[in-house]
Design a binder for these strands. Sequence first.
RNA 1: GCGUCGGUGGCAGAGUGGUCAAAUGCAGCGGACUGUAAAUCCGCCGGGCGUAGCCCUACGGGGGUUCAAAUCCCUCCCGGCGCA
Length: 407
Amino acid sequence: MSSFSFEIVETLHGTRARAGELSTARGTIKTPAFIAVGTKATVKGLSTETLSRIGVQAVLGNTYHLYLEPGEKVVAEAGGIGSFMNWSGPTFTDSGGFQVFSLGAGFGKGINKFERDVDADEALVPYNKELAQSHGKLAIIDEDGVSFTSHLDGSLHRFTPERSMEIQHALGADIIFAFDECTSPTADEAYQKEAMERTHRWAKRSLLSHKRNIDSARRQALFGIVQGGRFAHLREESAKVIAGMDFDGFGIGGSFSKKDLDASLARVNTILPMEKPRHLLGIGSEPRDLFDGVEHGIDTFDCVAPTRLARTGTLYTARGEIHILNARYRTDHTLLDEETGSEVGKTYSKAYLAHLFRSREMLGAVLASEHNLFFMMQLLARIRASLLDGTFREYRQEFLTKYYGKA
RNA sequence: GCGUCGGUGGCAGAGUGGUCAAAUGCAGCGGACUGUAAAUCCGCCGGGCGUAGCCCUACGGGGGUUCAAAUCCCUCCCGGCGCA
């Protein structure tokens, strides 16, 4: 009855890695896969024709952004996010939970999903605009949901698990996420626990709210999100609780310290049911993280890194990342990256791209975005192929050695 | 030729006696970026060094006044404009 299914095609002995096929109403994703981030119903700088050409399988939009602009109604009128943006493949929407963090605790503090040496105050405060502003935040959390001011015009809004579901139903993506709280990596254990437990209650409400909408529940798959921050025992507890709910798949969210991402995934994925898909939210800047994720049983990833790095001048190449704005590339007429297979990489020179970036020509950002995203598509495609023919370990060794150097 | 205004760091352009190695922007150099408030943000940016500090040389050239000059005076050079 549901148009959603996940089939494991191959596994790699001695690891939790698997190659699979994740089927949705709008197409099948061959996993492991990198999902392109298209927050505002656009993968910045790239047309959907380009996305198809470079092998993008699915796009992930964001509830928060699309709710604010153009509004979920407009998207619904267009037939959902896919039709709206002229993307015929599978789509995901994030629940807006990440914005609870990025506009809340993380606001203006320069902290991100990974641990930094920044101190954050995580006090729970009843919402009012003045208070929020005095705390330097655009979002304030309470048990029922999150109140926030729009970053566009300062107007007041409120998300609850039910509201997030309602919006995501209207946006109509094939895979949607439960409303969660992504905590700051600097939050202490007591807060992580409190936030995690709240996220669990929100997960239950999201699920209930989703099932109640029979029509949406048939067309859209709902993924629950495991939290727990950087504390192993909380991660485990969260995985157990979320795994115990009737979700179609799982998202692994929240913050990690760089060093224990690996360990967290290892724990979480032994607890999550093997037969359901797992999406690692927001990870995929470093190629080695993708190999690690796959090895620990992650099926899909999403990350803004390929396109953001591209726009800011950092390009992936088979020999590591390069900063195209560095002086040395001004006169480097060699091709950007002949080895990865990217059209851009084997067509345009570093000197030309350096020129486009220096002169702020928009083509620079476009070509760089295409290249970086292709790089990730290619990486995941090769990883999948290596799982299918059993050469995963060899491929990882070969790729990482070339990418990071011998060191 | 006379008059007048002006000559400041790579460029543009503030400053018009001390808090000026000199605002700001651009350019330059480097860095960051992980469920996108990001075509963004952060450093450095006269020279040298042990770079939260110290030393040297500096505001067209030269000479003065002053405890102190990018800032005032004289002179020369250069440029814009006006008049011959």
